[in-house]
Design a protein around this nucleic acid. Structure first.
Lengths: 205, 205
DNA sequence: GTCTATAATTCGATAGAC
DNA sequence: GTCTATCGAATTATAGAC
């Protein structure tokens, strides 16, 4: 999760890196602490020495994953110097870059939040952050109460995040498929603001 | 999964219904066969008597889940009597209705296909069904090679399916929130064809 | 701090009575 | 077919040597 440095990692960091990789890939229930220990190059006892339990270790990973997904978003959403379309463009670039790096992150978060909704309240409240934002107010102003602004938030997240969530279904498993997929995602940085603008314009017609 | 009849279910059916409910809710790894047995109102031994193993039982549920998600789609996609916008409208109505009934279905399928991609080849090949369809050809004709038609397929699935996948994050847990969410989804039957049309029109500008 | 060995528990599966 | 009781394997967690 954190940036790889050339400096050696401490044992605690090695375990956390390994746990992050495997938890995000397989989810909490399908993950074995032995697999994490092996991935970290240490043994099982040491994992419990540092993190006490599988649950505690997962808690660390989940908290950091939510932060990773949300960091940078709030600034874009509440920037008073940008109009709606600029914010959409900013969000698109930010998330395409982030999810190209961590493509499994959204499915992981969605699955684990569904399994345990308290993760949201425990960390930062996503719903409030979205609906209280300057972005959302601009959305309300644009939709003019003709339609629920939440629709457009769903549309934006849908076109932005869903391809990554569905890539195991939509794309092949070969390396060429992955490259092609990433190319498509890169193109979407350009198109998503245009598409969103077009969707918003359907209200004035 | 199957329609509830007033007639009593056989034991095998009771187990399958219970398994479907719990597997879709919690996924393969987080599900305990004991929980399925309890949900079915029988005991653990009987589950293995009918289905031999957890894996075999899951296989039945997964196959039926994929069919449930895909049945009805192929007819819409390959209807030679409808234009693109009609097909989009048909898909929107079909999936909003389906997912209001089975909101956990997409996240379940996406998670389990990611964990075991062979589910797709084992059952019906989704990718081929989509890209070989009359719908996809109409999409290609409309986009005129200016942009990959796959983008619009992702957009459609994104605006259609993502709200259900993300509802644990976007919507509250109370009953009123659920009703409000379903109301929004109902509205989307009307809007999605309009939004998709607007997105496609960005190519002619 | 790190390891090996093992305890304690959970879980899938089966034996065997009815 | 259905049940109770239990086995055996897998998994988390800990004890104790170094």
């Amino acid at each position: 999760m954190a940036e790889q440095e050339t400096t050696a990692l401490t044992t605690e960091e090695k375990i956390k890196e390994a746990a992050t990789k495997i938890f995000i890939e397989k989810g909490f229930s399908a993950t074995r602490t032995r697999d994490i220990a092996m991935e970290a190059g240490i043994n099982l006892a040491l994992l419990n020495y540092y993190f006490r339990s599988k649950e505690k270790l997962f808690e660390v990973v989940m908290t950091e994953s939510l932060q990773l997904f949300l960091v940078g978003l709030e600034e874009i959403l509440n920037d008073v110097n940008t109009v709606l379309k600029d914010k959409i463009a900013g969000i698109a670039i930010h998330y395409v870059d982030l999810l190209k790096k961590y493509p499994d992150l959204p499915l992981f978060i969605l699955s684990e939040v569904k399994a345990n909704p308290s993760w949201l309240e425990a960390n930062s409240n996503v719903r409030e952050m979205l609906t209280q934002s300057n972005f959302y107010k601009q959305l309300e102003a644009t939709t003019q109460k003709k339609v629920e602004p939440l629709h457009f938030l769903m549309n934006l997240l849908g076109v932005l995040v869903f391809p990554f969530v569905a890539s195991p279904v939509l794309t092949g498993t070969e390396a060429a498929d992955k490259a092609e997929f990433n190319q498509l995602m890169e193109e979407r940085k350009y198109w998503i603001p245009i598409w969103m603008e077009a969707m918003l314009k359907t209200l004035s017609a």
